[in-house]
Design a protein around this nucleic acid. Structure first.
Lengths: 215, 215
DNA sequence: CTCAAATGAATGATTGTTCATTCATTGAAT
DNA sequence: ATTCAATGAATGAACAATCATTCATTTGAG
């Protein structure tokens, strides 16, 4: 924010702390996507960022903190995205739910590099309290909001499934669709995934989602 | 499994190759669940198996091969399980589908240690061709069978969603439920997960799953 | 000039792998 | 039954490679 990018000529640059940290976090995301978390080293990240070896310890003190900050970055970006989607959507619960769910298949959020980060950390979360905390905290908030919306929609129409089951089912389905988008991009894309998710909405909320379907 | 031999007194044991390999694979599963894949070393596995350092290279040549064999073990165990479930179930497509899906929440398959292995390898799969291949091959077969069953059920009754959408939706939802079972065991258990999965079946196949629901 | 940002060679700790050695088991000879 | 090579499973110290981290030095903006 502070430094203008006015001098493209100079070989060496000094950037603000915030700029460098984001640069390193983005490099970490790329390295995790390219090499996997267990082969992501200080060297692969530094190289990806085209910076020197020592720079990460300078800005993050340790590798562990870099990884935590990377997870935080991705998770918070996600949280900001669905919050904004809620704000800018229509007032009805149906509109809000659709906006919120569509974030999961938005081009800015649902990128394979970032999906790789989600799954990499999920894979390690069982054994790392810090990762689990970061994720669980955000997840709790997300599910609460989703639950509220589903309850509201359920109360408006006729549904054979409980709101909490629908909410959990939706979140779960999206995790699996992300896995397909990550590992089998030839057989799954954003439109398909969105369509499958909407199919589910159409059958659990037949009154509120009448015209969407028929695939 | 381990104490099959007659001499409990002797400190040192010699076991058949197959016994040792399975022992080491099980130790690897525990180590991945306990430490995570990126902290799982030859030392942690050997310690978990209560054997010496060099034993893994003796039986698997390299760490990489041990990990591949571990993934194969879990994935093949899963394949055997759903195949057996298909065989021992009733003849109707509905019965077969339910049997097949219930395997995902069977106590022998759906253990947290093994879920940790699934997610650990999914997290690394983007960057490791071998892992991706092992998983993709089995997944393709699984989805084909599931697709066939869904198509058959669709043709029997009235459904607003395409068979392939239902099949993919089911598989995806189960992945997400596995994640909950792995990371939030206090808020999710096998019965709940099965119930959520059945809710989905009940609404997409209203004719074939009439009485199951109302949660 | 001043000083924070950035470097990259150096360091010690950790890792996967190797291999000479130890030891339990087997089976043939006594 | 007993003995004793032969076999190969298992060990664990040693090795080279790789890793995260440190720090004296250099760079460049104000």
């Amino acid at each position: 924010m502070n430094q203008t990018l006015a001098k493209p000529r100079s070989k060496r640059r000094t950037a603000s702390k915030e700029q460098r940290q984001v640069q390193l976090i983005k490099a970490t995301i790329r390295s995790i996507a390219k090499n996997g978390l267990s082969v992501t080293t200080m060297a692969t990240v530094a190289k990806e960022a085209q910076l020197s070896q020592g720079i990460i310890n300078l800005h993050f003190q340790s590798k562990e903190r870099l990884l935590e900050e990377t997870l935080l970055y991705v998770v918070d970006e996600y949280r900001c995205a669905w919050r904004k989607a809620l704000e800018s959507s229509g007032d009805s619960a149906v509109e809000k739910l659709v906006s919120m769910l569509n974030v999961d298949f938005d081009k800015r959020i649902c990128q394979r590099n970032k999906l790789a980060v989600w799954f990499a950390f999920w894979g390690e979360s069982r054994s790392r309290l810090t990762y689990r905390k970061i994720y669980a905290e955000r997840e709790k908030e997300y599910k609460q909001v989703l639950n509220g919306l589903c309850r509201e929609i359920c109360s408006q129409g006729q549904s054979d499934v409980s709101a909490s089951h629908i909410a959990t089912g939706l979140v779960s389905m999206h995790v699996g669709l992300w896995l397909d988008l990550l590992l089998a991009p030839a057989e799954m894309n954003l439109e398909q995934a969105r369509s499958i998710s909407h199919s589910y909405l159409a059958v659990v909320f037949p009154d509120q989602f009448p015209g969407i379907l028929r695939v």
